[in-house]
Each structure stands twice: as structure tokens, then as C-alpha cells.
Design a protein around this nucleic acid. Structure first.
Lengths: 194, 194, 194, 194
DNA sequence: GACTAAGCGAGACGGTACGTCTTGTCTTCAC
DNA sequence: GTGAAGACAAGACGTACCGTCTCGCTTAGTC
């Protein structure tokens, strides 16, 4: 009601052009060399328009990434929470072995010096996935597949943390076998006692 | 035999001045704003000297970090491998809650766009620590504290991965309680069967 | 019609600051050590602004020189073209014995490796002066003081060439006596016969 | 007699290699971009050796130029001093229309900011030529072809100055016709009176 | 024949400046 | 009052040379 509204409206065309240009550069040269200058030139847009609407280069990149790489990981319920969880881990590892892995690495990497980017990536990308994982985990606790007393966050971190560690810092592979090993190991600690 | 030997020798004085200046900037302004220009000026050194001896800004930063923050985590053997391992995790988490945490975050973060930096950090910082962890783990397997059939890398990743994940991507804390929860969870899957 | 007109206008303030800084450096350290970096710093201006508007360091120097050392050599008509011409030569020689001489030497000297600078100095400094000389010469031909058939350019070069030669290459002086000798010599070949 | 003489002698091989490399660069990239570093590299010589024996880059260039472009202009005596003089001017103009012209332009040009270079070029290149011209002129005065009272330096400057002026500063040509015009003009003022 | 002294190549060093790129801001005109 | 265009101050980039300074080797004399 009380919003002032004089003047020209934000241009949807420009918004889209910017996001597409940003994603294109993200793909072609990586986040590190994706400059605002470059995005503006490629989108046929003034730099001001970018500065006006995005808090930082990093936030723009996150948004461009999310817009284009639709973050949907479809989820199959098989009845077994344990198996759903492993399937989800495999799907994630698989995704990260492809081009998305590079984006995620760059996003998390560059986030370390851009708090706004870190929040954006965390809230918009990581949290939803974690929620999905948490839901499966809770279901498993409900069905008795997982100990009721287990800490969901600790469990999820123990399962997923290694994937991110390998993505970001280690040269160890993240193939199906490795994921299985980790899952088996941790889940044997999560089993409801005999 | 055929070693080249002509020409002036590398200046140890300059080397040290550069590493110290780099570390000082790392502390004061962070890796992101640690410029080679700045290091050179502060060290009283020509930029060429830096470019001559370090492959990239990132590698310089890693070396500066390692030189100054002596990477020794003293290790106490208490008899129980399980308890030694938890103590090591606690020590690491504690270290990462302090200023070193910021360095490590920045190192891993910036590594994502600098492969040489990534190798340097991995080989010189992460690997030695992992070796120490692996040694304890093997000892535990020897004593029967941990299942003999467990995969050491999977186990270590399940224990340490969460710490790095929280450091880099999550807003969850890494306090003693959390570390304990993860350790307990994973180790209950590692226990030699009754 | 199709003139582009978007964007910020060129800053007159910066333009002036640059020219003044350039001239100051020209005076203080000479063209050879007048760096673009130095001009920018002194003018409180980004280097880009200089590169945007001046083709080369040399062209900037020429413009700075011309802007500051107003190129007006007032001309007195005494009735005798011959005497006006000699007066003009004396005035030029006198000017070149002072600080301006150093500028002109440096301009012509550095022009040899900067074609744009050469054109600029030629067109903006030398040509106007030559035009003035040519005008006097023609007047002298009109009044019968100089042979009608004489080639103006050859005559002017014979009169002025020696001054530049001495300025640039010789250690012979360019004082009133010498100028008079040259003028007398050449003009005796220019006299209208009988 | 009293010179100390222990130690190794100056290497003639290096001296020649340096002069040849310098001349080669002079030809290929011009004086402006002939660096001492480049000469040393091309000659397979340490920079120190160059700095030890040559006062400046400019002096080296002059010496390289003189060593290679043998400065001999053979002189024909035809009996007529006047004609010999014109022939000499034509020969010089002709020479300056070729590659030597570029060298001479660059030498005189760069001399403006290197007094040692200026002296070297003046003494070793210009003076000998001027002496030759002076000799012809004096002969002409002896034979009565030129006025006995004429000032040799003024006359020579009036004749040659224009050639250098055109070489260095003007866009007027220096062809046979132009040289003839100047010669005719000046010499008509030098004629012994009827 | 050993000693001493320079000359020499190589190449590291502290610097200065280069010309380019990007940052985030500011200004102008068009819509 | 948004948006494209683009100028602006700032400052880092990585490179090229500068002139100086070790190095260890070679080449002469001089003792």
C-alpha cells in the first residue's frame, strides 16, 4: 500500500539477460574470471544495473547457477529409508562428478571471502537438499531403521561431509564404491540395536 | 654432474622477508586482498623475485601459512586409540575455531580456482595430518579397538569430513559436543563386534 | 544524425590537470623521464584516462607544451620584409637559447621514434611558424626585396635549417652574430638583382 | 709505462659480438627498442660486460652504427669546388633517403637526452663529414669560386642544415631537385662578386 | 708453478614503468 | 526514476628492462 512506485519498473529482460550471461561466463571461464564488466558487456546492460540489483558478484553467480541448473533432485521413495538415503548420496556424488561439481566447488570456494555469497549458496542450495535428507532420516527413525536417539545433523554430516571434503580438498575419488563404503560404515553405527 | 651453477645464488634473506610479509598480510587483510604487489612492497623486494620463485599467489600463501603456523599438532598416546583419535579431532576443531580456521577456510576456498595452490595445501598441510590420523586408526585396528575390516580412508573421512563441511559451508558450530556426537556415531559403527 | 551521445562527458577538469602535470614534469625532469604513471599520480587521475585521450606519451607532451608555452611570437611589421625576417629569426634563436630550446630539442628528438608525436609537433608547432615566415617572405617578394623567382621553402629552410641543426646536433652557438651571418649570407643570394 | 696490467685482457670476441648484436637490433627494431638486455642476450654476453665498456646504450649504438656502416663517403675532385660540394650534398641526401637516414634520425633524436651519445655521434660522425665539406669550401675560396670573406661555418650550415631539418622535423622531401634548389640559392650568395 | 687480478657468462636482485583489466562510482541522455 | 552508455579514480596484474650485485670460471701476467 504505502510503497512509492513512481518511475520506470525493473526490466525483466535485463534481469534475464544478466543471469544468462553470468551463467554462460561461469561455464566458459569459471567464477574466478567472471567479471561484472564481462557480464554487463555480454548481457548488453549497464554495470549500474547489476550493482543496483545484486549485492555482490558472488550472489549473482549463485543466482545464475540456481536459475539455470534447476536444483531439483527428484526423490524416489522405495519404502526403505536406508536405501533412499544411499540413493540420494549416489545421486549427489554423481552430480558432483559432472560439471555441476565444478560450479559447487567454485561456489563454496569463493564463498569463503564473500559472506553474502555464502549465505545465498547455503540457504538456497544446501539447505533445501539437507531438508530432503533430514526428511528421509526422520522417516527412517520413524520406521525403526535408524536409532531414534541418533542426532540427525551429526548423521547427515557424517554421511555427506566426506563427499564435500573430497570435492573440495582431497584427491580421493567420489565414485559409487566409495560412497557405499562411507554409507555402510556410518549406517552400521546408526542401526537400531539388535 | 651436469648441474648448472653459474649466477648469483637465491637470497635467503629475501625469501624469508617475502614469507613473513605474506603471512602478515594474510593475517591483516585476508588472502583475498593479499596482493603480490603488497607483499613485495612490504618485504622490500621486487615483484620479479616473487614471480621467479612462486608459481602463484596461492602457493605463496600456503607456504607462508605453513612456515609461520608450524603445522605440528603434538600427539599424545594414551593407550586408547579411540581416545587419541577423539582428542585429535577435538584439537583440530579447537584450532579451527581460532584464527587458523580462517586461514584454512581461505586456503581451501581459494584453492578451488588455483590447482597449484590446491596441491600445495593438500600435500603439505592435509596429507601429513591425515597420515597421523591413519596411524592412530591402524593402531586401533591392531589393538582390536576398531574392526580390522574397516576402510581407513572411509572412516577418517566420516570423522573429519563433517568438521571441514561445517568450516566451509554450514553455519553449524564445531564445538566439543558436536565433535563428540560425530565421533560417537561413527565409532559405534567402527567398533569391533562384541 | 547518428551521433552517439550516451554516457558521461569527458572531464575538462581532468584534462587540464593532466596537461598541467605533464608540463610540470617536462620542466622538472625532462621528457625522457616524464612517465604516464608520474603524470597520472601528479594530476590525481587514473592512467586509463590518459590512455583514453592521448595516443602516446609524446603526443601528450606536445600538447602540454603547446598549451602552456603559448605559441605566439608576436610579429612586428617594420615595412622591410628583410628586417622583419631577421627579427623573427633572432626571436626564435633567442627563444631556443632559453628553456623552450630544451623542450623543442626534446620534442624533435623523441619524435624520431614516435610518428604521432612527430606529426603533432610538426603540425601544431612548426607549421604555424613556417606559415608566418612564408607570409613575410611573400611580402618581400611582392615588394621586390626578394627575387620573385626564389623558392620560398628552399629559402626558409636555408635560413631556419641552420638554427635547428645547431640546436640538435652541433655545438656551435646560436647567438645574434651567427644568426646575422647566416641571414646575410642567404639573403645576399635572395636579393633582387641589379 | 706505469699501467698496472695483471689480470685477463678485454675479450675482442665479446666486443665484436656486442657491436654486431647491437647493430642487428638497431636494424630490426630501432634504437628505441634496442635494450642492453637484448644486446647481451643476442651476443651471448653478460650485461656487465656491456656496462663495463660502454658509457651508455646510446654510445654503444653510435659505435655499432659506425663500425658497421663504414662512414666513408669517397670524394671526387672534379676541379670545380662548387660542383664537388653539390655532389657531396647529393650523396648525403641520397644516403639519408636510405636506411642510414633512419639510423641518423634515431641517433640525433636520442642524443637529445644522452649527452655522451650526442658527443659521440657529433665527434665521430658529423665532424669528419663537416671537415670534408670545409676542405672543399676552402678550396673553393682559394680558387675564387666562393667569396673569400664568407664564413665557412655559416655557409656549410646554410647548405646542410636544411637537409637535417627535413630529415628530422619536416615532411618535405630531400630529393635531387630540392637539394639543387637550396644549393643554387645559397651559392648565389656565395659567388665571388663580378 | 703458484698467486693474483681482472674479465667474463650467468643470473638473482630492488626497482620503475609499462599498458591492460577490473572495481565501484558518477554523469548523461533516452525512455 | 530505471536503464544503457561510458568516463572516472583507484589499484593490481604480469612483463620488460634498468643498473647493481654476487657467483664460479677463465685467462693473463707477476712472483
Amino acid at each position: 500500500m504505502t510503497e512509492a512506485k513512481a518511475g520506470r519498473k525493473r526490466s525483466e529482460t535485463s534481469r534475464q539477460a544478466i543471469l544468462q550471461a553470468a551463467f554462460a561466463l561461469l561455464e566458459e571461464v569459471g567464477f574466478d574470471r567472471m567479471s561484472i564488466e564481462g557480464v554487463a558487456a555480454r548481457a548488453g546492460v549497464g554495470k549500474t544495473t547489476i550493482y543496483r540489483w545484486w549485492e555482490s558478484r558472488g550472489v549473482l553467480a549463485v543466482e545464475a547457477f540456481l536459475t539455470t541448473v534447476a536444483p531439483v533432485i527428484a526423490f524416489h521413495e522405495t519404502g526403505s529409508a536406508r536405501e533412499d538415503m544411499i540413493a540420494q548420496m549416489q545421486a549427489l556424488a554423481d552430480l558432483y562428478r559432472g560439471p555441476t561439481g565444478r560450479f559447487v566447488r567454485e561456489m563454496i570456494g569463493s564463498s569463503q571471502s564473500d559472506p553474502a555469497m555464502r549465505s545465498a549458496f547455503h540457504d538456497l542450495f544446501l539447505v533445501p537438499r539437507r531438508e530432503a535428507a533430514r526428511a528421509v532420516f526422520r522417516r527412517g527413525q520413524g520406521t525403526g531403521e535408524f536409532r531414534a536417539c541418533a542426532d540427525a545433523d551429526a548423521a547427515i554430516d557424517a554421511l555427506y561431509g566426506p563427499i564435500y571434503y573430497r570435492l573440495l580438498a582431497s584427491d580421493a575419488p567420489i565414485d559409487d564404491g566409495e560412497v557405499n563404503k562411507i554409507a555402510a560404515l556410518v549406517m552400521s553405527g546408526l542401526n537400531a540395536p539388535g
